[in-house]
């Protein structure tokens, strides 16, 4: 059974629910039960938080190093350099997220235009 197996109007929606929504929500469901068992300030929570944070950091690295779409055409050095400069600007210019985003974007756009 694929996306095009049935021509009925409802089939794509069933496909999205079974192959998209269910395999995504199931992990949230399990997460609620695991999260319900760990108490705040416990070491277990530090572990769970560390794993989750590393994962999100992995997503960030993925978006910068192996992007899809229009960004994939640009040089990886430009993207890493822009991200690094933006992050340093965030850290040393008052810890404001907007400053990091603006500096990173400015360097990326300048690099793309040159």
């Amino acid at each position: 059974m694929t996306w095009q197996s049935y021509s009925d109007w409802w089939w794509p929606y069933v496909f999205i629910l079974l192959a998209g929504a269910f395999p995504t929500y199931i992990w949230r469901f399990i997460g609620v039960f695991i999260g319900g068992r760990v108490s705040e300030d416990s070491e277990a929570l530090t572990v769970v938080r560390a794993v989750a944070t590393s994962l999100v950091a992995g997503v960030i690295a993925q978006l910068i190093l192996y992007p899809s779409g229009a960004l994939a055409e640009s040089s990886v050095y430009l993207r890493v350099g822009a991200a690094l400069a933006g992050f340093l600007a965030y850290l040393y210019l008052g810890r404001r997220v907007i400053i990091g985003v603006v500096v990173g974007e400015a360097i990326l756009i300048a690099g793309l235009l040159l």
């Binding site: 992990w27 949230r28 997460g31 609620v32 989750a52």
Partner: peptide
Amino acid sequence: VGLSSIRLMPMVAAFIP
């Protein structure tokens, strides 16, 4: 899709408390 969403499990677990 399920593999790409596994990360939600530790994220939700850390978020619940």
